[in-house]
């Protein structure tokens, strides 16, 4: 039974209007997109909506959500997202974060233990790797950065078109600026996060695309080591954007994890 995940409204939070999409039924699951924003629809969302009441929130400054001009770091954004989840009246939802959204989800989980039924972090940034570096989007063109997230660039073309339309480039630039405002320096990590995560008991699944060229493997290892109830899964033949390259396998992993919680 296919459930449609559609634009559902705007939440007034912290003086901002936050847009979200919603669809499906089952235990609530909140999804935080990555630093390039999200297309309106993805097969991955439809798969999740088969088992969950799925809420895909546009982060502040992304998609249809207003930018928090006063936000200076990712924890500021995480606080806004936490308030948005409260505004939706969701009781202990599962939380899924993709890439940059995974970092945000981890920050949010560290605000208070027990708030989320489960945590799924897919290629999360946010912890400084000791081996390798997180690929710096600010030194790359928008297209080059988005393509770098794919193991197979033909899949990029299938999602965005190649060349992508100007409207897509404009969205990416808006999202890049929103990211820049909170994650320019240090680039894509918070040195406090590993210590905080040590006291987050939420059952956590860390997923890494085997061919992720944006976030080094060491980041996923460190997340799995820092969180007391975490396990690590590696998805073969996928890059950073696992949700676009291997939606079925990722959805199955989320179902096994969030569904079981």
């Amino acid at each position: 039974m296919a459930a449609e995940v559609v634009r559902s409204g705007t939440l007034p939070v912290a003086g901002l209007g936050l847009a979200y999409r919603r669809g499906g039924s089952g235990p609530p699951l909140v999804l935080l997109h990555n630093d390039i924003g999200t297309p309106d629809a993805l097969p991955f969302y439809d798969l999740l909506a088969r088992r969950h009441d799925l809420i895909v929130l546009d982060l502040p400054g992304f998609g249809g959500s207003q930018r928090a001009d006063w936000a200076r770091n990712v924890r500021d954004l995480a606080a806004v997202v936490g308030l948005a989840i409260d505004a939706l009246g969701l009781a202990r939802p599962g939380l899924v974060g993709l890439g940059f959204g995974g970092w945000l989800a981890a920050e949010l989980a560290s605000f208070g233990a027990g708030r989320f039924a489960s945590l799924t972090l897919v290629g999360p940034m946010g912890i400084k790797p000791e081996q390798g570096e997180i690929a710096d989007q600010f030194l790359l063109s928008h297209e080059a950065y988005v393509k770098l997230g794919f193991q197979d660039e033909t899949r990029y073309a299938a999602v965005f078109g190649d060349p992508a339309p100007i409207e897509q480039l404009l969205r990416w630039d808006t999202h890049r600026e929103a990211t820049m405002r909170v994650a320019w320096k240090p680039y894509m990590f918070n040195r406090a996060l590993p210590a905080l995560l040590a006291s987050v008991p939420t059952p956590t699944l860390v997923v890494r695309g085997e061919a992720d060229r944006i976030v080094p493997a060491d980041c996923a290892r460190r997340y799995a080591a820092a969180l007391p109830a975490a396990r690590l899964e590696v998805v073969a033949a996928a890059g950073h954007r696992v949700e676009m390259e291997a939606p079925d396998r990722l959805a199955a992993l989320v179902a096994g994890h969030a569904g079981a919680a």
Binding site: L139, S141, H142, I166, L169, L170, W172, E177, M180
Partner: peptide
């Protein structure tokens, strides 16, 4: 990309920026 980083120019220049950057 280095000459015209995102956010460096006014928002009304965004289209010109992404066209040259990409």
């Amino acid at each position: 990309v280095w000459s015209q980083p995102s956010g460096y120019l006014a928002p009304e220049r965004r289209k010109a920026v992404v066209e040259v950057v990409n």
